[in-house]
């Protein structure tokens, strides 16, 4: 006897696709426990190196907390680079991309699913790094407003994953240079976004330009909300940063939607969906 399969269409299919694509990213973590070592312990080693640099130069203790929080947030940037932006390139390499395109669903829903799954999985990693780093270095927190913190995190992630979806559409056209470009976007972004120091240390216009990366303002606002000296070292007022993050969220998601359509058409026209130039 055959099991009847309910075939969804419209928004139901859209939601089903999101959940379907998010599923392996979340469930994969519970099946493969080694991520605890590779995604929490190893990044904590890097964070520790920066902590000891600050200790060597006699930095105030709050900078240790800045590094721990910044180091945890690098997990999200790595996720954006390697599991969002370049994901469609990997899918192309493994032959899945053509299957996505010919399936009766929407590529935007697939990207949203990748984003949702990546966000949930990466949040666990980031939380692990913060817990381990905070315990190891006895970081002191002084939470200002929990709801503001939650809002900032939510907005920063919405804008960041919107940006990831947008760049994923651009990576659709790339071939083997995708790996190198993603690789190039690590250290320069760690520097520009102030992962290991307050962004206020830069000239105003440099910091303003760096604010196009959602994590720059998100991280700055979060530091202001969880550290006693945060507001003094903050770049802009938290409320202003919240408004800018709302703007960035709308901008990146809209741009992702438009670019994805254009790039998908272009990739189909130029025959790049199935190419494999290694």
């Amino acid at each position: 006897m055959e099991t009847a399969i309910r075939k969804n269409t419209g928004w139901r299919l859209f939601i089903q696709t999101i959940l379907g694509r998010a599923y392996p990213r979340v469930v994969g973590m519970s099946r493969e426990k080694s991520w605890l070592f590779f995604d929490i312990f190893l990044p904590t080693l890097s964070v520790s190196a920066y902590v000891f640099v600050y200790r060597a130069i006699g930095a105030p203790e709050e900078y240790i907390g800045f590094v721990v929080v910044g180091g945890a947030m690098t997990a999200f940037w790595m996720n954006i680079l390697w599991s969002m932006s370049s994901q469609l390139y990997w899918e192309k390499e493994t032959g899945n991309l053509a299957l996505y395109i010919m399936s009766p669903t929407n590529l935007m829903a697939i990207l949203l699913g990748m984003a949702l799954g990546g966000l949930v999985a990466t949040a666990q990693r980031a939380l692990g790094i913060i817990l381990l780093g905070s315990l190891a270095f006895k970081v002191q927190y002084a939470l200002g407003s929990f709801w503001q913190l939650l809002l900032v995190f939510f907005l920063a992630m919405t804008a960041l994953y919107g940006m990831g979806m947008m760049t994923a559409s651009l990576f659709l056209l790339l071939s083997r240079e995708a790996w190198h470009i993603a690789n190039l976007a690590q250290e320069p972004i760690y520097l520009a976004a102030g992962f290991y120091f307050p962004i206020k240390s830069f000239n105003f216009w440099v910091a303003a330009a760096a604010s196009i990366i959602p994590l720059t303002l998100g991280l700055d606002a979060m530091r202001q909300l969880v550290f006693p000296s945060g507001p003094a070292l903050g770049f802009l007022n938290v409320r202003v940063e919240i408004f800018i993050l709302i703007g960035l969220s709308v901008l990146f998601i809209t741009a992702a939607r438009i670019l994805l359509r254009k790039m998908e058409r272009l990739a189909i026209r130029e025959g790049r969906l199935t190419e494999s130039r290694r």
Partner: peptide, 22 residues
Amino acid sequence: VYSIIKPLAGAAILVVMYSIIT
């Protein structure tokens, strides 16, 4: 360009950290 930007950015993180404190 790729070979220059990446290492310089990595070094610049430490330079900025050092210069802020000292």
